[in-house]
Simulated scan of single mutants.
Amino acid sequence: MSASSSMRPVLPTDILARKGSEPLVVLTAYTTPMARIVDRHCDIALVGDSLGMVLHGLPSTLGVTMEMMILHGRAVVRGLQKAMPVIDMPFGSYEEGPQQAFRNAARLMAETGAPAVKLEGGQHMAETIAFLTKRGVPVMAHIGLTPQSVNTLGGYKVVGREGEADKVMADALAVEAAGAFSVVLEKVPEGLAGRITQRLAIPTIGIGAGVACDGQVLVVDDMLGLFTDFRPKFVKRYSELGQTADEAIAAYAAEVRARHFPGPEHAFPDVLPAKGPKS
């Protein structure tokens, strides 16, 4: 069942049931207007902590707070009717231990209305994922490149080549065994992502992980081309809205400076025009 054909909200059990069938369509959303558009076409609207970089100008996701995730989570949930909202748990909100993770996951769900959360990490987060899922918190896992760990990973690099492949596979098996209903594979070599997808009974959602995954996710601002100077290899741009916006704002600025805007059709007269006689 896809979001486009469902007449009820998509739930984690629906996502799990999609394993090996029609690919899952996932995009990030951070605002109500964008959520309404995503809702018409996607199965999942991910309120990603990428909002820190995309909307707030932060250099990484590490400065994102629970309050930011709740604010944007509420906005996205208001814009959805069918697609399932999933909220990222921000850095520092779950790493301390299962109890901390549960408190913050429960807060995210209660204050936004989202039915699921996403957190980063493989084998070392398995205990936390199991703790959450046993207590009614559906978890989307995230392995491979985990942006919240960028300082220890040494940058935004591909994860899983050569000697790292066994570890990434072990991470995937660990989050599945812990009860995650799906797992994001970020910047994982295509062959490895395919093997993980074949091995797991839960859906894999790729971002820079090749076509063999059970679904795909992109940052919506990336695929719309809202950034003119940022073009990751794994992003296909379906539009160039950044360039379009730049041209539109330049035209507006030129018309204001030339006093061509506003025109008479955009202004209000001092006296209302007389109404004609009733027929």
Rank of each mutant, 00 (worst) to 15 (best):
S182G: 15
V183S: 00
V184T: 09
V184K: 01
E186D: 08
K187C: 15
K187R: 13
V188I: 12
V188M: 02
P189C: 09
G191I: 02
G194I: 02
G194H: 01
I196N: 05
I196A: 05
T197Q: 02
T197F: 06
Q198H: 11
Q198M: 08
L200Y: 06
I202F: 08
P203Q: 08
T204R: 01
T204Y: 01
T204V: 05
I205Y: 01
I205V: 15
G206T: 08
I207A: 11
G208K: 05
A209Y: 00
V211T: 10
A212V: 04
A212P: 00
C213H: 02
C213R: 01
D214E: 07
G215T: 08
V217A: 10
V217D: 03
L218R: 04
L218Y: 10
V219K: 05
V220E: 02
D222Q: 07
D222R: 07
M223C: 15
G225S: 06
L226C: 12
F227T: 10
T228L: 14
T228Q: 05
T228N: 06
F230T: 11
R231I: 11
P232R: 06
P232W: 04
V235R: 01
V235N: 01
K236H: 13
K236T: 15
R237M: 11
R237T: 08
R237D: 07
R237F: 09
Y238K: 05
S239R: 14
L241D: 02
L241P: 01
G242H: 09
G242S: 08
Q243D: 09
Q243E: 12
T244E: 11
A245N: 03
A245I: 12
D246S: 10
E247G: 10
E247I: 13
A248M: 10
I249E: 04
I249C: 12
I249N: 03
A250R: 14
A251L: 15
Y252N: 08
Y252A: 13
Y252L: 15
Y252I: 13
A253L: 14
A253S: 13
A254I: 04
V256N: 07
V256W: 04
R257S: 12
R257A: 15
R257F: 07
R257P: 00
A258S: 15
A258H: 06
F261S: 10
F261I: 13
P262H: 07
G263K: 07
